[in-house]
Design a protein around this nucleic acid. Structure first.
Lengths: 343, 343
DNA sequence: TTGTAAGCGTTATCAT
DNA sequence: ATGATAACGCTTACAA
């Protein structure tokens, strides 16, 4: 019975105004709950708008305000045309962080645009912001020495760095507090009677990786631990396996093998298993990230949980602060030690 | 020396026009490479624009054209506030598909907006399109019986379904061709002397899962295979493990266990391993998807590759066709059989 | 070949 | 309390 107001022509503020016998500006104010509009008018306008099936144009609002209400999330991405293989950062890292960002900015009516970064230069990024395609950027998976943040900063384009930061610059970032993590881990290891360990480093192209090198080296003595060997695991399973094999050739195994992430830890475990060594009986193995992988493999990994969702959420919050004209500081979130079977 | 034209005030088409001694419309046409603009003018305009550091406003263009040039990618997402655990579809599936979409639509200057679907109703989605927040939708991870596509269709809002379709409706979709996959798989199994097998089904909430039930049942006899048992693996590792345990209690194991996806296959393998059965010596196990997981576990999984990137790419292409006013049909892409160690 | 003018839907300013 | 008007940056008839 209720005749569905199926709008044949588009209905705008003008249509609503005409139908309500008011001016467009009053409609605008009523809909935006401006003060100084009597409750009665407000209600009437809203009723008319509803009956007309009026949907405000985000585009009109954006255009007027010169704000797109979009945040560009920049993530490294290349596809090898030959093999078709994707070269990007870990899916799980990306997804969880992305949802964290969305979760944070959604209440402010911001939306997230994914930008596949296959070598975009600073100019291209700046153009996206200047053209109001996005209002700012969140960077994921940036490599050490990337000059784009600085370039954007010079153009006053807002951005937040994730798992990255710029030494000597007060750029807002959200990073993992590796030091706190390794303190927890070393405490655990020491309590298990571990005296020495090998360090399987990450990909030195990332700031976090080289940071962890330094942190591990510096902290070990505090916990009575000897850093017996340092090898690169390149954050990859294969890198881990190769490091594990190298370790096995080097004579006596240390009490523990501390790996810079989950994947390389699993590679190490594979190498050990192939050589007939048992984890954790013969040697303990620890990891970092706590990806799905960590519980999937055998033995399940003792690892430091990298709270991707939370990190994304905080980055989103900083982005909003930036939009409000504030200057949010950098922040490091503490990982949680997850003790499972491997150590 | 070259004085950097750092725009203090915003430079628009008007600025460029004034500087070039032309009208704004000519500038517009020159920049858009319209026919009927002499090469000389075009060049001059472009030079001036460049020297002024002019960046066209996407917002202005969008506003005028009433098109946002954004595609909304809708993905199920819920976060359990208590545990903080994310409930969403697989990260890897999401990421690869998303990048496929981006890859396809980027050349047409479309951009992708991720929409976390925590129970958005059809009205909310329609409002996003009607407000020109996005021009259309790509749906991921839809469950059987979801009425939203039909509702959007009635409002003439363009969308593409991925790994989903609507029987009896010509909605554009991109799905995996499970039948072709199982033909390849059964051929392989038969060649290995397999005579009977157990089917570990997926989550019946998804269309693909129930389709595979039917396909497997129908196809088996063609290949001289007996479907000895049917159990649900719920697409999950735990579901697979439980199914595996049930199978082990049921007396003699069939020659093979065909699982509806990788995760449940791994669960089955865990159950078998716990019971001291070897894969593939005692029983062959097959999977579906070819996620990272497939090579991570031991034994590496023989599985059907679900080409997520390609599926996303095709969906993006269909989206563009829809925007051109065409009515693209549904499409099923063939999975590739990847033979590894588990079968 | 180029210019003029209108219009996209919104909000803010200034009147009334 | 409400109305008229301008402005945001762009494109596209229509005119010249």
């Amino acid at each position: 019975m209720a005749k569905k107001a199926r709008p044949r022509a588009k209905v705008t503020r003008l249509t609503v105004a005409a139908r309500a016998g008011l001016s467009p500006s009053t409609v605008s104010r009523a809909l935006a709950d401006h003060p100084g509009i009597p409750e009665s008018t407000r209600r009437r306008v809203k009723a008319v708008a509803k009956s007309l099936g009026y949907v405000p144009s985000d585009l009109g609002r954006s255009f007027y305000q010169k704000k797109s209400f979009r945040i560009g999330v920049v993530i490294p991405f290349k596809r090898d045309p030959a093999s078709g293989r994707l070269r990007t950062i870990l899916s799980e890292y990306f997804s969880k962080t992305l949802f964290g960002i969305i979760h944070a900015v959604d209440p402010a009516r911001y939306t997230v645009n994914v930008i596949a970064d296959g070598g975009l230069d600073a100019g291209a990024l700046a153009a996206m912001a200047l053209s109001h395609s996005v209002d700012g950027f969140v960077f994921l998976g940036l490599r050490a020495g990337d000059g784009r943040p600085r370039a954007l900063h010079e153009k006053s384009i807002p951005f937040v760095l994730i798992h990255h930061y710029e030494a000597g610059h007060p750029f807002p970032f959200v990073d993992i507090d590796s030091e706190s993590g390794y303190r927890a881990l070393f405490t655990h290891l020491a309590s298990k009677g571990v005296k020495d360990f090998a360090w399987i480093a990450g990909d030195p192209g990332y700031l976090d990786a080289t940071d962890r090198d330094r942190i591990v080296e510096r902290l070990a003595p505090e916990f009575g631990l000897t850093l017996a060997r340092k090898l690169s695991g390149r954050y990859s399973r294969r890198g881990g396996r190769e490091a594990g094999e190298a370790l096995l050739k080097g004579g006596r195994l240390p009490h523990a093998i501390v790996c810079a992430n989950d994947r390389s830890a699993y590679g190490v475990i594979e190498a050990l298993r192939a050589a007939g060594r048992r984890v954790p009986e013969d040697v303990r193995v620890t990891a970092f990230d706590n990806n799905d992988l960590a519980t999937l493999v055998t033995p399940a990994l003792t690892t430091l949980d990298n709270p991707f969702f939370e990190i994304g959420r905080l980055a989103g919050l900083k982005m909003l602060a930036l939009f409000r004209g504030e200057m949010p500081s950098g922040e490091r979130v503490k990982p949680t030690l997850i003790v499972r079977d491997s150590a």
